[in-house]
C-alpha cells in the first residue's frame, strides 16, 4: 500500500531528483505516479496513455525544478481539462561551495545550512580545513580548487553557489577561473575593492574573459553595512537569494566607496 510513498521518500532521502504526480481533479482523484528522471515510473493515473504523457511532462518539470498543476484529457490529450494533475518536483538540495577556511566561513556555513544548501568547505591547508572547525558543513575538503571543481563542477547549476573567501590569489584566481567555466548561478568573491582590482588583472592573465568577470559578485555581499562574520554571512546569503530571484538589492559590487563606512546619521 505504501509503495509510492516509500519510493518517494527513498529518493528524497538519497538526494535523488524525483517527481510526484497526483490527480487532484477529475476521474481517479488521488491517483499517483512517482517519476524518476531516467523515466522509471511506478503507479498509475488510470489510463496508460495518460500515464505516459504525465510521466513525460513530470520528467520535464523535474529538470526545470518546477511544481504546479497541469491539465489533460482523460487519455492524456493536450488542450483538454478533464483531469488536473499536480506535479511536484523534489530536487536534491542546492550546493554551496565555500573556498577558504577563514573566520567568515563558519558563519557562512551556518547561514547556508539555514537556507537548505548542501555546504562544502574547501581549503588546501589541512590545519584550517577541519570538520572540528566547521561541524555544520556537509563536507570539508582539504583540496585545491581544481580538485573541488573536478568533483563538483559538472553538477553546479543555477540554484547553486560558489563563495570564494580566501582573498589569496594562489587560491582564488584558480577558483574563479574554474567557477566561471560552470553553470553555477552565483559566484561571490571576498576582498576589498583594491584587492579585487588587482585580482582582475590576474584573472585576465589566466584567460577569464569579460563575460566571466561580469558574473562575479565582488566584493561579495549586499551593501547592508555588515561587519561581523555572522552579519556578512547574512549579506552574502541575501545576495544569493536576490541573484536567483532577479530582484534588485544593493550589492556592494554596484556601489562605490568604503565597504565598512560609519552608520548613517539619524
Amino acid at each position: 500500500m505504501s509503495e509510492l510513498y516509500d519510493r518517494l521518500r527513498e529518493a528524497i532521502q538519497d538526494e535523488r531528483p524525483v517527481a510526484l504526480a497526483t490527480v487532484i481533479e477529475g476521474h481517479n482523484a488521488g491517483a499517483k505516479l512517482v517519476v524518476e528522471p531516467d523515466g522509471d515510473v511506478i503507479g498509475t493515473l488510470g489510463h496508460p496513455e495518460l500515464d505516459r504523457i504525465v510521466s513525460r511532462d513530470a520528467v520535464g518539470e523535474l529538470a526545470a525544478g518546477r511544481t504546479g498543476v497541469r491539465h489533460y484529457g482523460a487519455e492524456g490529450q493536450a488542450r483538454e481539462t478533464d483531469v488536473s494533475v499536480f506535479i511536484e518536483s523534489f530536487s536534491p538540495p542546492p550546493i554551496m561551495i565555500v573556498f577558504g577556511a577563514v573566520d567568515f566561513t563558519a558563519a557562512l556555513v551556518r547561514a547556508g545550512k539555514l537556507l537548505g544548501f548542501n555546504v562544502i568547505v574547501a581549503d588546501a591547508r589541512s590545519v584550517f580545513a577541519t570538520v572540528k572547525r566547521f561541524p555544520m558543513a556537509d563536507r570539508v575538503m582539504v583540496a585545491w580548487p581544481d580538485e573541488v571543481f573536478d568533483h563538483y563542477g559538472d553538477r553546479l547549476g543555477p540554484h547553486d553557489a560558489v563563495c570564494i573567501l580566501t582573498h589569496d590569489p594562489k587560491f582564488d584566481v584558480p577558483a574563479v577561473r574554474r567557477a566561471v567555466a560552470t553553470d553555477v548561478g552565483y559566484i561571490g568573491v571576498m576582498g576589498s575593492r583594491r584587492t579585487h582590482a588587482t585580482r582582475l588583472d590576474r584573472l585576465h592573465e589566466v584567460g577569464v574573459d569579460q563575460k566571466g568577470i561580469d558574473r562575479l559578485m565582488a566584493p561579495i555581499g549586499l551593501d547592508i553595512g555588515s561587519r561581523t562574520p555572522e552579519e556578512t554571512a547574512i549579506s552574502v546569503c541575501a545576495e544569493i537569494i536576490a541573484n536567483r530571484t532577479g530582484h534588485a538589492a544593493p550589492s556592494l559590487r554596484d556601489s562605490e566607496g568604503p565597504i565598512h563606512r560609519p552608520p548613517a546619521e539619524g
Partner: peptide
C-alpha cells in the same frame, strides 16, 4: 494537505 496552486499574493508556494 498540499498547496497545489496560489493566486495573487500567497505566503507559501505550491508544494
Amino acid at each position: 494537505a498540499r498547496v497545489v496552486n496560489v493566486e495573487g499574493s500567497g505566503p507559501r508556494d505550491p508544494g
